[in-house]
Amino acid sequence: MTDYNFAYLDEQTKRMIRRAILKGLAIPGYQVPFASREMPMPYGWGTGGVQVSAATLTPDDTLKVIDQGADDTTNAVSIRKFFEVTAGVTTTENTTEASVIQTRHRIPEAELRDDQILVYQVPIPEPLRFLEPRETETRKMHALEEYGLMHVKLYEDISQHGAIATSYAYPVKVEGRYVMDPSPIPKFDNPKLEMSAIQLFGAGREQRIYALPPYTKVESLDFEDYPFEATKADHACDMCGAENSYLDEVIMDDQGSRMFVCSDTDFCAGRQQAGHLGALAAVNAEDAA
């Protein structure tokens, strides 16, 4: 048992966070300032997501935590354990069993349902930050809907590289109003931002919470002649054969030969169990035999 309050945070803090979440849902894409607390894990390691999850969880929830799409990466393990101890919630690695999913850098491959909540860990919530470092300025730009700087940046990419050179944390416009950072998910995941589940974004160090209600219109910024493209490695998963999932590239040996495998570990395992096998899975099976 634990001497701390349910889900670690005190009730006053959770109340403050809950109010910020509600404002975020009422003004989709707008970054609501909140008095982020110092958590027992470092800033930059998911303190925003952890605070949002702590304010959201009930004892009946089943929690899944992923980092880079994987349930077994060390920080995902650490955060999952934190909530097992402080909130006593059931945890799972199975996307469909989870009612609350906290994620860093990915949206699960399985389509989320309307009874699920996706909580993102966000490092830099301000999509304009790398174009204008000052909060006082970017706040004005959002107020005046002055997003020209962002379009200029994307256009300069095109003139220099022939393509938009942003591959993750690709900016989106929400309901035709706020430009929003979807957190550092690969742009492959951007089309999934329009979904049935509630999406909550927490940035602890930067003290911001924002949100997307279900079915909110989310457009990736682009140009008519250079339309947005959700890209991934041009391969199928070598383990489960999936052709439509986001892939990690794994270096296999000293000669640098590669294989490609789903970043969503639960998705990949589920497919393999259902009998789908990729090019190298057959080799694995032979090895085992």
């Binding site: 920080n75 160090r205 990690d248």
Partner: peptide, 19 residues
Amino acid sequence: GFLEHIKLPHYVDFQSELE
């Protein structure tokens, strides 16, 4: 915190940059 967080896995983002 933010400085040291770059030790955490970023391979999904790196993969998208690679592509």
